[in-house]
Every structure is written in C-alpha cells, then in structure tokens.
Design a protein around this nucleic acid. Sequence first.
DNA 1: TATTCTGTATGACATATATCATATTTTCAA
DNA 2: TTGAAAATATGATATATGTCATACAGAATA
Lengths: 226, 226
Amino acid sequence: MSKCEQCIVREFSSLKALKKDELLKIADCKTSYTIKKGDTIFSEGEQVNGIFCIKDGVCKLSKLSQNGKEQIVKLITKGELLGQRSMISDEAVNLSAVALEDMEVCFIPKADIMGFFDKNNQFSMNVMKNICGDLKESEAHTVSMAQKTVKERLAETLLYLETSFGKNEDGSLHIQLSRDELAGMIGTATESCIRLLSEFKKLNLIALSGKSITIIDSAKLKKLAE
Amino acid sequence: MSKCEQCIVREFSSLKALKKDELLKIADCKTSYTIKKGDTIFSEGEQVNGIFCIKDGVCKLSKLSQNGKEQIVKLITKGELLGQRSMISDEAVNLSAVALEDMEVCFIPKADIMGFFDKNNQFSMNVMKNICGDLKESEAHTVSMAQKTVKERLAETLLYLETSFGKNEDGSLHIQLSRDELAGMIGTATESCIRLLSEFKKLNLIALSGKSITIIDSAKLKKLAE
DNA sequence: TATTCTGTATGACATATATCATATTTTCAA
DNA sequence: TTGAAAATATGATATATGTCATACAGAATA
C-alpha cells in the first residue's frame, strides 16, 4: 500500500488540501489499479460510489447518443479526479470512462471522502471550484457544437490535443486517437473526419503518417478554428 | 426591506439551508430589483461579485459566438440562483443574462454569502449539488447539439419549454420566445427554425398564432425528438 | 507466409441546413 | 391613423455533411 502523502499527482487536484491525518486515512482505504488501454473504468448508468485519482494515463469520458454513436465529452488525464460529480449528486455516473492508454489509478470509496467535505473547507472549496471550471468548459463546448462547422471544430480539437497532451519527439501529437474517436470528439461522421484530415494535409496544416498526426501550421489552424 | 425569512422562493434554492440568523443577515444586505423584459442583468465578461436570487420571471443565459450569433445556453426562472459559478470561481461571468419577462430579483453581495460556505455545510452541499446538476445537464446538452439534427432539437426544445415553463389557459406555451431566440436555443439559423415550425404545423404537431406556439401532439413530438 | 480483420481513405450521391432574396405580417412610434 | 421598422414567412439556391459503396493499408492470427 503506497503512501498518498508522497504521491506527486495529488498536488494537482483538489486533494492537495488534505492534511496529514486525512492522507493517512485515504492511503489506508484506497485501492490501486492498473488499467490496460481500451479497458472500461466504468459505464454510463453504473453506481460507482467513490472517486478515481488518475496517477498516470489518459481516458475518455463519453456518452452514447440514441442513434448509437459515441460522443466523447471530455478527456481526463494524470492528476485529475474522476467521478466527483456523480459522487456528490449521489447518482449513477452519466458518462462512460475508457482508457486511451495504459493507466494507473487509485479508487477512494465515497464513505472515506465525504466526511472531508464537512471538516476541511479548503478541500470542499477546491472541489467546488473544480466542478465550476468543468461547467464553464462544458458550456463553451456546447456553444462550439451549436455554432461552429465541423471543419472549425476539427481545427480547434487538434490544437486542444496538442496544448493539453503534448507532442512526441518527432512533433506528432502524443495522444493516440483513432479516426473514429476523433470524429466522436468533434461530433461528426468518421468519414467526414477523415476527409477533413486529408484536406488539412493537402493544405499543409498537418502531416499524417499512419495513426499519428503532426500539426505543422498551428497559426493557420488557429485561424481556421476562428 | 422585505424579510428573506418569509420569501417563498427561497425554499426552492440552496438558500433553504440557511438558518434564521443567516437569513436576517442577507435580508439586511440584499438589494431588490425590478427588471423589465429585455433588460440586461449582466453581460459576458463583467465582474458580478454576488448572486441573484430570482423571485419572479424568466431570463436567458447566452453567449455570443465568434460569428456574432447568440447561443442561448440555459433559461433561469423563479426560485433559482444566478451567478453562482462565477462567484465561486472568482471570475468574470461567462454568460450574459437578459430578462425574457418582467422580473423581480434580489442581489446578495459575494462578501455576505461566502462566509456561509465555511459555517453551514448543508448550504455548501446544496450549492455543490446544484452545480453538479447543471454540469450533468450541460454535458447532455453538448451531446444533443453534437449528435441530433435541428429537427430533433427543435422538437426536444418545444417539449422542454412546455414541461419547464407551463402553458397558458389556451394551451399555448407560457414562455414567449422570438423565432430568433428559439433558433438561438437549438443552434440554427432563424429561417431554418421558422421553416421547421411551419413543417411541424403542417404535420399537426403544433399550432402557431402570432408569436404563440401550442403543442398539439406531444407524443409524436417526443418520437421526433427520439 | 498467407489470411482475415479492422481501420483508414476516397468516390458518388442524398440530404440537411445555411444563405440570400423577397413577401407578408405585426409592432410601435410619430 | 399612418408610415416605418422589425419580426415572421417562404422560395431559390449553394454548401456542408451524412450515407453507402468500395478500395486499400496495416495489424493480428493461423
């Protein structure tokens, strides 16, 4: 059982407000998991009863629409918490979480976290600010979906992937998404996504090589995204 | 200066957790306003520094997209609080609020509310659950925008307006939105919105008479919305 | 290595939606 | 009331995007 006190990623989430004795307590009741790429952490509608602290890796949070298409709502990465909303609302999760890379996560049961809300106001406030940030982001996302063209959204998304998840040494996007998943992020058909990627390639905005995408002209992409 | 203790709408918001002395305190520092239909309560980017408690009326929360179109993100009505997110995040508001009807609101300064978060855990928890609800709703909204057709969204929105804001005696939707605003809710061009309304009318799903819209066949509308 | 399977790519076409133009109706101030 | 302005309505057309078909490439498996 590793110690939460010494866990670096804790510093990046609401958990940084926890005091020594609180950390000892969750170190005691948490469970560590290794999750393989492609594995499901939880599915829409499940009762989760706790939160996941992401130590390493990235996962997608998605929702199935009535027509059976997967819409990716958000990506979650190292240092973030997963499942806060449903824990606080005391509801089933409204999104499914699936690993995009191998991950290391810790699960902390609800019972062991909820008490902190009463006793540690800084923690409470951190969580609240976090969720407020998510809300603001989500509202901006809704506006993008409603008002922007698919092309604009693709440009926007590629830039987001680069700034949020970084590049490999060769300059290609570090995060690996299938065309299908990329289409699921921008809310379009897979073929349309592929077609637009080809178009961007012809315009020398990006380079494609197998699955990997390299942004060549981020200034022009930014313009395209408006 | 009216007493918050006796205000009925308080029962419908997070404020219901406040105790007698807390209510006396905010009754003392709040300001009541009457807002005329069409008036702006606050604009995107402003520093608001407090929350509005809606005693009566409805307002729209909207965001201008880069192409200059107004996207309505949410409607807020009697009993709800306005401005929680930006107060907690300690940021400028990310949405503009404009009255759709004459309204009565009370403004409570940030300084007089923030203290309750430390002292009254039930209040804290209520606010948190509220924002979590908003987040869940917003995420579902994003998926609708990304995956549904304009027709489906219009059907969905009409039903939402009926269930959330009720009908007049003649059965027409109580809430009065211009075609332009309705288009702004579903994220489409005004002409497209008008055209689809005409189509729904021909299909005998709704009746139109001037600005007012009456839902005739909500079962079929529900099917259309999928 | 051959074989199958899955993901990527592209063409052809259908359709939804935006845009521009122009009536028509309603609202509202002079 | 009258005229002007705004909102609603509808047609014509352009464009973006989805859908279906098919080809091709790379990965997985036998």
